[in-house]
Amino acid sequence: LITKEHAYESNGSVYFDVSSFSKYKTILQNISQEDLEEEEEEEEIDYSIIGEKKNPKDFALWKKSKEDEPFWESPWGKGRPGWHIECSAMAIKYLGETIDIHGGGQDLKFPHHRNEISQSEAYTGKPFANYFMHNGFVNIDNEKMSKSLGNFFLVSEVAEEYDPIVIRFFLISSHYRSSINYSLDNMNQTKKNYDKLLTTIKKVKETPLIEGDTEITEKLITLIAEAKKNLIESMDDDFNTPKAIAEIMTLFRNINRAIIENNNKINEKFHDDFFEFIKMVDDIFGIFPNLEKRLQNEFFIPMDEKDELINSLLEIIKYTRSELRAKKVYDLSDEIRKRLRDLGLEIEDN
């Protein structure tokens, strides 16, 4: 980079000269060179030497080491690589001069990725990456997750409370470039939506098949084909997962209305097309693994049915304790009450 006059040494450090790279300001921005030149004229930026740098925006490729810092010997003295040059060196060595996809958080777009692109392309003369994908953040109750705020936790911790597939369903409900807000309300709503999907799948699976076509089955078959087309178009549009999920939810609502609410029968063509669609959704999003087991497992009972089941179980427990006390088996009755109290459930004996 020094030989190509894209960098210069100053006081034992080496800096990238941003003025030598004409695309520096337009990288990752949808503005034209013409607009940029007009902007610069208005700004009247002073490019005089400031400290060690010719330009305040010049960044370190090699940094002179301070006392007691790790260092390597170099033609410019003891020092270490700059933050940005490390990534370019590793990418070019192991992935080649042009890579297909470069990822990273939104906070790395500038200055890190802009500087990474500048130094790499100035060095190779080739595009550094064909696509940059910058992901949004997971916020907690509308605040950025961080250890300093005490709202930091791991996916493994959330997975103790929620099925990992529900977590995945929650994450893809937002576009990867957008931030998403994690809260108990949002997670519980996601779980309800996912349970609804499973309920619909189970209903279609259990509905008896009829011979021939009906107006309803023909309409539903058309809706499946449209949903499939729209889903693929959504994913082709920069992985627009929220739009794709909306297509799935809309289709399932229509199927619910036709089969569950109106008790319509289905034919083999609809049944096969529906489960082919489910397979496609699982291949893309991975939200229906081990589907047979999921449909049979009790913790995927819809929320309203779960509430009813829990209330019924509590009534059985209360009745059992009452019978035990009537038979003067107080030890066992008290043990049941103690264990319920440990779970946060209080029972008072009248």
Rank of each mutant, 00 (worst) to 15 (best):
P56G: 07
N262S: 11
N142A: 11
V14T: 05
Q296F: 06
I232F: 11
H112E: 01
P208W: 06
E86C: 09
H113C: 00
S48A: 09
I27A: 06
E121I: 05
K219W: 02
K306Q: 15
V166F: 09
G12E: 00
D237T: 07
N130C: 03
Q29C: 02
I92D: 12
Y182M: 08
N115V: 10
E43H: 07
P56W: 01
S65W: 01
M280R: 05
T241V: 09
N267I: 08
F252K: 00
H134I: 05
I259N: 11
M90H: 00
E161G: 02
L209A: 11
F277W: 03
E348N: 14
I301E: 15
E42F: 14
E52C: 03
K328G: 04
A225D: 14
P75K: 00
E323A: 13
E298Y: 07
Y330K: 05
R257S: 14
N290G: 10
I336C: 02
E247N: 15
P242K: 10
G150L: 03
H175W: 07
D100F: 08
S174F: 08
K293H: 10
Y47D: 07
K203W: 05
I85L: 14
K192F: 09
N256P: 00
I101M: 07
I49S: 13
D17H: 03
R253C: 00
D68R: 13
E305T: 07
N115A: 09
E121M: 06
F285Y: 01
T98P: 03
E69T: 06
E52A: 14
R337F: 05
K196T: 12
R177E: 11
V329L: 13
K265I: 08
F137I: 12
E218H: 03
E39P: 01
S19N: 13
F285N: 00
E37D: 15
S179K: 10
M303L: 12
V158M: 12
I101G: 09
L171R: 10
C87Y: 07
I221M: 12
H113T: 00
N264K: 14
A129D: 06
K328I: 06
N350T: 08
G212T: 06
D100I: 05
F71W: 15
R168D: 11
L197R: 06
K191N: 12
K126V: 01
Q106F: 06
M133E: 01
